[in-house]
Design a protein around this nucleic acid. Structure first.
Length: 948
RNA sequence: GCGGAUGUGGUGAAAUUGGUAGACACGCUAGACUUAGGAUCUAGUGCCGCGAGGCUUGGGGGUUCGAGUCCCUCCAUCCGCACCA
């Protein structure tokens, strides 16, 4: 049996050993007592705002992947603070959401209770890692003091419209004034078709007027499809629907239209697109937003229907191909489908629609199998007057464009595949370019076989067709966006209630005089009521519909009115939280203007790419709307964005021989038929399984037997997402207690570039831990328990090592290249050990450099060096070029591009002299094999290459 | 399907942006010190080869005196896709 010696024994016998747990506890307490990280609104100081995407506090707690970005932003914050900036670096919680509600459904525990518990746990875990947050500025989106202002912003959006003439949101009162003066001829509704004069407007009753205004509001009611599960009598989120059935219970689901709130983000599509240019985000991230917004220029063209008054509007980016139209395709949900379908096709169309109802949008887009159904109807070509069959197919989506396309199989791949599959004859409009084998999609071509545009380029043909359809009133130029208005309703409990009450089925915000609500019901926040059950309400409504005392409001006239029972989605609270940190306790304003002006944009925003198009787009939209309405002075929330990668789990597998309780080691598994099973990574050292631990893991493995290789059971491994179900989760608390927070912080940074995904490997942490111990030994002799630091003057070599490090560290932090910074710390520590340097003149600046990375250890050494204030307020060292100048360079010398030897030359040596010396060199002569040199390439300070 | 990214030793990675590929670590091998080692120190460690030397940055091709880096092409893996947040 092996003997294990406890760490504690050694720690207490050697006092001067690096005792991270003692050090870290001491300074955490000190920072707390001294309020070291409290941020004042000192508006005379230069500011820097460093923000993390706040977490959703899940029941599972943090795993080692979560803090990666937090560590990076903390390093940057501490760095900026030491450079003299007033740094706002807050943290909070995105605390409304589906998981807490699901947990409540399963266990009956109130989401408020579990959320509070989870937040407490998160804070404890975060504090463990030594972050420099100002917790007095914490926000929680589920706190009524916070969501009061989320509701307030919603109210502003409800009472606003987007004025296309000014390109800005404006109060709805201004729109009403316009309607009263001139009707809406100059201000058509974004998606509506109503037109009226001032006189007509005046003649409308309140209901009609409100309905018209609804078509303009930035927050508005409309109808949209949601996943409906009859068995659960509820609406489901996309990820609650798996393989076409509900995740819970596996019940069938279908899409159903419901009245929902929306935010008119599409009004800002162009603005959101163009102002990307002024942001310091990665091109990849901007590209994702551009694609999401999906601007495309084209035309909307109207096709009549034979024997019908109905008209089909299509959107196309290729009006030039209009004479190549061989069929039309409507989205199966298109409103005209049932009315134009002929009797003979009715049954087939209905069957097809039923099939599509069970399909998610993503399935439809990814589907390679072609499907569709002929409606029996024929459209009339607006120019050639030819009759064109009208089909429906899932590849046309109702939400994009007009939900209908003109199909040009010779020029579009999907149309081509569709035509082939259904044997639709293809018109060739590209002459010899189109072979009949596949669609011709190249844009550099002459259009043929197309009446008056034959022989034209695509550009010319596009203009000619547009002119023609505009003249015949059958089409117009339009810009289409892929971006859709944001669905803002959830039929759920755990979210912000809407500050909306209905009167005569018309929504009003609670403060509107028309409702005449009692004082108590007229002010924000509308509190989320306590419930006893989280079951859905009737008719697909959320749980709030079950609570009569919430739903019914009696106004001053004694009328019983009805509250909105939907709640807001998860992104409501997260769309503006960065503003609240600036002034978190203000009871009168969502943020005081002077503070918003001072703290301004977030200078560095750190978070994962998974938010590329959701959260980041919505926050930009809210910021722009708040800016237009005059509440803040900037129209982009996040100036610079840093995306951290994911830390993946490294899973371990054992291989059970099929039908037995015998497990075979990884290397021998191919000799048997086996099933791979995840095992908990904590039972595996590297890849070697602790067989005893495994037997004790679960009763079913108690009498497991093993087939070993070299006396060991070796596990298989695979990199996967870190998750409980894969038993590969590593908890930061464990790492911190074993190695300390400073080691943990350094190791996460050392793992690789911050924006890259990488697997977690606990084994590698020894390296950085060793480095900290080695650094410690520059200050202390562990054997003699002596403080080694002296006041001697530093040598040239020592200063060079120091200043090289100052330069590298400062440059790398600005580039967010933290992994190379840690390497540099290791390099300089190795160098100082070799130089036996224990001089304060070198070590003190070094401690300051290290402070953002390993704040506890740095604080300890800083105080041991005789400083009385926190290192958080020390100055970051600045390098001096004079210590870095090199007088000579060891050049690599290559012959014909192959590196053969190295030769040292003075930096100032003349090229002629260098060439002479190189040619005279023995090694060089050997490789030149007596041949004359053609030329010599000399790059000063870099290399020498001799060509023969 | 669309969009975004990534491929370099046994492993995580570095490379001054076109100039000595593999810094810094992990792991491994050998040794020193030690009552002990999961402390510390020393040496070695991309691959092939006894050696001289050759090969090597996912595969193939190209530009260049010189390519991990630029261009073309193919392959593989990961992430997102609108009600998870």
């Amino acid at each position: 049996m092996r003997l294990f010696f406890s760490k504690q024994n050694t720690i207490y016998t050697l006092k001067m050993k690096y005792n991270f747990s003692e050090i870290e506890q001491k300074w955490k307490q000190y920072w707390k007592d001294q309020n070291t990280y409290a941020v004042s609104n000192d508006i005379d100081k230069p500011k820097h705002y460093v923000l993390d995407m706040f977490p959703y506090p899940s029941g599972a707690g943090l795993h080692v992947g979560h803090p990666l970005g937090y560590i990076a932003s903390d390093i940057y914050s501490r760095f900026k603070r030491m450079q003299g900036y007033n740094v706002l670096h807050p943290m909070g919680f995105d605390a409304f959401g589906l998981p807490a509600e699901q947990y409540a459904l399963d266990t009956g525990q109130h989401p408020a209770v579990t959320t509070e518990k989870n937040i407490a746990r998160y804070k404890e875990q975060l504090d463990n890692i030594g972050f420099s947050y100002d917790w007095s500025r914490e926000v929680q989106t589920c706190d009524p003091k916070y969501y009061k202002w989320t509701q307030w912003i919603f109210t502003q959006l409800f009472h606003s419209w987007y004025n296309t003439a000014t390109g800005k949101a404006a109060p709805i009162a201004a729109l009403i004034a316009i309607f009263e003066a001139e009707g809406n001829a100059q201000y058509p509704a974004p998606k509506g078709t109503v037109q009226f004069t001032a006189a007509e407007w005046a003649s409308y009753d309140e209901t009609t007027q409100r309905n018209v205004l609804m078509q303009y509001r930035l927050a508005y009611l409309d109808h949209a499809e949601v996943w409906w599960c009859e068995a659960l009598a509820t609406v489901l989120a996309n990820d609650e629907v798996v393989n076409g059935v509900s995740e819970r219970g596996g019940h069938p689901v279908e899409k159903r239209k419901m009245r929902q709130w929306f935010l008119r983000i599409t009004s800002y599509a162009d603005n959101l697109l163009h102002s990307l240019d002024k942001l310091e985000w990665s091109e990849a991230m901007k590209e994702m937003q551009r694609n999401w917004i999906g601007k495309s220029e084209g035309a909307q063209i109207t096709f009549g229907i034979d024997n019908s008054d109905a008209q089909i509007e299509v959107f196309t980016t290729r009006p030039d191909t209009i004479f190549g139209v061989d069929f039309m395709v409507l989205a199966p949900e298109h409103e005209l489908v049932l009315s134009i379908t002929t009797e003979e096709q009715k049954a087939a169309v209905e069957t097809y629609i039923a099939y599509v109802k069970s399909r998610s949008e993503r399935e439809r887009m990814a589907e390679k199998k072609i499907s569709g159904c002929f409606t029996g109807a024929y459209a009339i070509h607006p120019l050639s007057k030819k009759l064109i069959p009208v089909w429906i197919s899932e590849y046309v989506l109702a939400g994009y464009g007009t939900g209908a396309i003109m199909a040009v199989p010779s020029g579009d791949e999907r149309d081509f595949a569709f035509a082939q599959h259904f044997n639709i004859e293809i018109t060739n409009i590209f002459g010899t370019h189109f072979t009949g084998e596949k669609a011709y999609t190249d844009k550099n071509v002459t259009i043929e076989n197309s009446e008056f545009v034959s022989g034209m380029s695509i550009a010319d043909a596009t203009q000619a067709v547009l002119k023609s359809v505009e003249e015949s009133n059958s089409g117009r130029r339009t810009t289409n966006f892929r971006l859709r208005d944001a669905g803002f309703s959830r039929q759920r409990y755990w979210g912000e209630p809407f500050p909306i009450v209905y009167k005569n089925n018309i929504p009003y915000t609670i403060d509107e005089p028309a409702l005449d609500l009692k004082e108590a019901d007229r002010s924000l926040p509308v509190l989320l009521p306590h419930v006893d059950t989280y079951k859905p309400g009737p008719n697909g409504e959320g749980p709030l519909a079950n609570i009569d005392s919430f739903v019914n409001v009696t106004n001053n006239k004694g009328e019983v009115l009805r509250r909105e029972t939907n709640t807001m989605p998860g992104y409501a609270g997260s769309s503006w939280y960065f503003l609240r940190y600036m002034d978190p306790n203000n009871e009168h304003l969502f943020v005081q203007p002077e503070l918003a002006q001072y703290w301004n944009q977030v200078d560095l925003y750190v978070g994962g790419t998974e938010h590329a198009v959701g959260h980041l787009l919505y926050s930009r939209f809210w910021t722009k709307a708040l800016h237009d309405l005059g509440f803040i002075t900037f129209d982009e929330p996040f100036r610079k964005l840093l995306n951290q990668g994911m830390i993946q789990g490294s899973s371990r597998f054992v291989y059970r021989i099929a039908g037995t309780n015998q497990f075979v080691s990884s290397g021998l598994k191919n000799e048997y038929t086996t099933n791979a099973l995840h095992v908990d990574v904590s039972m595996v050292d590297g890849t070697e399984l602790d067989m005893e631990a495994f037997k004790n893991w679960r009763a079913e493995y108690a009498d497991a037997t093993f087939i070993l290789e070299d006396g060991k059971y070796i596990c298989g491994s695979e990199v996967e997402k870190m998750s409980k179900s894969k038993y590969n989760v590593v908890n930061p608390d464990e790492i911190v207690s074993q190695y300390g927070a400073d080691t943990f912080r350094l190791y996460e940074m050392f793992l690789g570039p911050i924006e890259m995904s990488k697997p977690w490997d606990t084994k590698g942490i020894e390296g950085v831990h060793r480095f900290l111990k080695k650094l410690w030994r520059l200050f202390f002799d562990e054997q003699t328990e002596q403080w080694l630091v002296t006041d001697e003057d530093a040598t040239k070599d020592e200063l060079k090592a120091l200043h090289k490090t100052i330069k590298k560290v400062s440059d790398d932090i600005e580039k967010f290249s933290f992994n190379t910074t840690v390497s540099q710390f290791m390099i300089v520590t190795n160098e100082l050990h070799d130089l036996k340097c224990h001089k304060k003149a070198v070590l003190e600046p070094l401690v300051c450099l290290l402070a953002p990375f390993a704040p506890h250890l740095a604080e300890e050494l800083w105080h041991k060096l005789g400083n009385e204030y926190s290192i958080a307020h020390a100055s970051f060292p600045v390098y001096d070029e004079q210590y870095l100048i090199e007088s000579s360079k060891l050049y690599p010398v290559a012959i014909n591009g192959k590196h053969r030897t190295n030769m040292e030359f003075a930096m100032e040596a003349a090229q002629d002299d260098i060439e002479k010396e190189v040619l005279a060199n023995e090694v060089v002569q050997k490789w030149m094999e007596g041949k004359p040199h053609k030329k010599i390439i000399f790059v000063k300070g870099r290399m020498i290459n001799v060509i023969v």
